[in-house]
Design a protein around this nucleic acid. Sequence first.
DNA 1: AATGTAATTCATCAGTCGTAGAATTACTGC
DNA 2: GCAGTAATTCTACGACTGATGAATTACATT
Lengths: 214, 214
Amino acid sequence: MNEPDGGNRRSRRGRRPGESGTRNAILAASRKRFAEQGYDNASIRDIAVAAGVDPALVHHYYGSKESLFIAAMRLPNIPGLVGKALESDPEALAEGRLGELLARTVVMIWEDKTLQRTAIGLLRSALTHERAAAMLRDFVRSTIFGQIASTLRSPDAEYRVSLAASQVIGLLMARYVLRVEPLASASGQEVVRAIGPALQRYLAGDIGTDSGTA
Amino acid sequence: MNEPDGGNRRSRRGRRPGESGTRNAILAASRKRFAEQGYDNASIRDIAVAAGVDPALVHHYYGSKESLFIAAMRLPNIPGLVGKALESDPEALAEGRLGELLARTVVMIWEDKTLQRTAIGLLRSALTHERAAAMLRDFVRSTIFGQIASTLRSPDAEYRVSLAASQVIGLLMARYVLRVEPLASASGQEVVRAIGPALQRYLAGDIGTDSGTA
DNA sequence: AATGTAATTCATCAGTCGTAGAATTACTGC
DNA sequence: GCAGTAATTCTACGACTGATGAATTACATT
């Protein structure tokens, strides 16, 4: 007779006793893989292995790779975080510390591993996957554009914000994706000191157009 | 009656009369595809179709996808261009126009379609393909770092240059890959006016460390 | 004219991918 | 205890991928 409770028999078919937390394991593993390899290079089989699970379970829970990606990349309300940061320091705009505030928020968000993976996954996947690019644009729009552009009272607010966004994106790319040294190893404080004033200038300084504080 | 480049007879086997320029067609098509889709998503079959050629010819000429990528991404001496720009304006450093000069050079390089495709192809592929990432780092090192960092006389020259690189990379990402508006549609002149001073500050201004022009 | 070499196409292989369905096992409500 | 449902694994399909080798045609040299 065969033993039903071998214990270490891996390829045992059927349901396992107790709670397995498989659904969350898949989600976490997919975040990791999407962040490290991007949408196309992260295969469902890889994700399943990383989650210690059969590939078919991924489909069972999330239906398709696309849906899994969407579920994995749904960010824990970052626009809310940015909005809170703005509200917590209402003087920032008047006192010319908007850029510094934005830089601090970005660096702070980055300290959360899950948020970091999500954002990098989006960034990585956006380059080859149109759906991911759309999600990233939406994210940028709702976060930076929505929350910040409305704070500015400038006719070229959107241009200013897109400039700031370019610096933020470049920071993430250089620091976390391409790992350009020594920027990649610099501390968050240093980065805020270096980037903050540049963002401030983009948002409210003289950028060569007719508006702005000369 | 005799059509030298018969457009309708597709499946004619064997060598064609006259010069075909197939080798270059493949290279050009691969640059386009690599730039648009990145290394992994650009298939050899796609490239062959874009070049109007049988897929096996790609292997015949370039041996493997990897070698084709290396051949396609070998840049027409950009470090030389940057060096020339620096030599042509030796006063730039002293007069605080180094950032503007760098911005102008970047924007200028971008006007060449082939260079643009090559750089974007590298950028896109770097995120999922380790080989491409290494090529891109080498390129950044030899170009920006080698030519510019040596011009600066600062102990934190490399940190400064990596900051400038982050802004340049972000500009390319936002403008040409993610197409964030209105930055993507802004003219080269506008961009130079907006970005130049930021680069200048990174390279020679006060960035919150102990060196720099306060 | 003969011969060797370069250019081109075709058929095919082994591998990977996303996906689907059937089979097996456990848990829950009656 | 029985039925239904949820969780898990296995097997497989069709599409696509990079790569290879043989067959076919043109050109260059003799």
